[in-house]
Design a protein around this nucleic acid. Structure first.
Lengths: 209, 209
DNA sequence: ATAGCTGTCGACAAATTTGTAGATAAAGGT
DNA sequence: ACCTTTATCTACAAATTTGTCGACAGCTAT
């Protein structure tokens, strides 16, 4: 009766680049929460406030959407790491702060979970992104220059220390909350912070010994 | 012409318990490979050599199958850990061997990946299974009895050391191969073993310091 | 204004996946 | 032998998910 035309829906029209970013934002949330294989076009579309054919229009296929969001996430992770490393001087006191910065960033953005999903599902994570060898080189050069140790440390030892730190940051963001509660260290969020602080001091002690 | 009866298919008939175990074996492979949400009834049925309604007959629903395989895996993990811990005396030289035993077991069976999937997808892993606090208690008692250290170590410190070891074992089984290659430590399998050996010595040094 | 470009959506199609129903056959007990 | 039980299968159904198609509508240029 009232309406001859069923609905006159207002339809927003974004430029392609804005729409892609909007959709990628929604996709990245799903990526962190459910992993690459858990990404659903309809859920992503609903989160982005569009219909799922619109997603396909902008990305071609689900697989290309997943590739795009993974590439964007890895790029963002790389930027985060480079920024955190450059912001801190080589000073030892700042290693703890740097690790805490990286850890909170990886946790807040869900990027630690993303890295874990990608590794578990067998996606390649290497390439220019997230290359640890540059970190190892910088850390080893700094270590040698300080000459605090009696015997000259090997690059292998420095590399293993860096790997342990990376493992604690990435794997820790996923596992440590559960492990800490299981080990009777309390279930409060500060326990994870204290653990990272403790670990940073342990690594510093080893690097100087 | 040749056959009036289309096919006289031999149909094997297992008792319920055997069939359940057979199906759970196939399911566990998929669990380690693709995670809980990646388990597909048809794939599991094909791997087990049965039809997918047979799987539903024995487990009721996909969700109950997933619950059953998770429970069985956690139980097996618990047995592995208890066995590895009991097999090693408290001797420090054996800490490295114990960690190596646990690491290879977690890797060979895919249980490290299972634990990571479960944590990422938000399943509860706690309970009687995989409780770290008993490990912490044992390690701390041993540490106090040895009295090698000048200042009395806190239980918190011991707990954090155990958490770091657990993190390295579980998260390491998934992440370390990728990290090691990325850090320029070589892509060969021995690099992971050497990393764990190095870590064991680092932990011992800390516990004694 | 008017026309073209294209971002957007509703409706449909095809494939996958979980679950159901009925028939069949393999075992054991009587 | 016969009957009961139940493990197993084929065939089908319902829901989900990805992808396609055609129409509509907002933006820009002329």
């Amino acid at each position: 009766m009232a309406k001859a035309k069923p609905k006159a829906k207002p339809r927003r029209r974004l430029d392609a680049e804005t729409a892609r970013e909007l959709i990628l934002d929604a996709t990245e949330k799903r990526l962190a929460a459910q992993g690459p294989s858990g990404i659903r076009l309809q859920e992503v579309a609903a989160d982005a406030g569009v219909s799922h054919p619109t997603v396909l229009h902008h990305f071609g296929s689900r697989e290309l959407l997943v590739k795009a969001v993974i590439a964007r996430s890895l790029h963002a992770i790389n930027l985060t790491l480079v920024e955190a490393i450059n912001a801190s001087s080589g000073d030892e006191k700042q290693l703890e702060a740097m690790m805490e910065n990286v850890a909170t960033a990886l946790e807040r953005t869900g990027h630690a979970r993303v890295l874990m999903w990608l590794t578990l599902e067998g996606h390649r994570v290497d390439g220019a992104e997230a290359s640890l060898s540059t970190v190892v080189d910088a850390a080893h050069a700094l270590r040698l220059s300080q000459k605090k140790c009696a015997i000259r440390p090997t690059r292998e030892d420095t590399a293993r220390t860096v790997v342990l730190g990376a493992l604690a940051l990435v794997g820790g963001a996923v596992l440590v909350p559960a492990l800490i509660e299981n080990a009777g260290l309390g279930k409060d969020a500060r326990a994870a912070i204290h653990f990272r602080s403790w670990l940073a001091r342990l690594l510093i002690t080893h690097l100087d010994a």
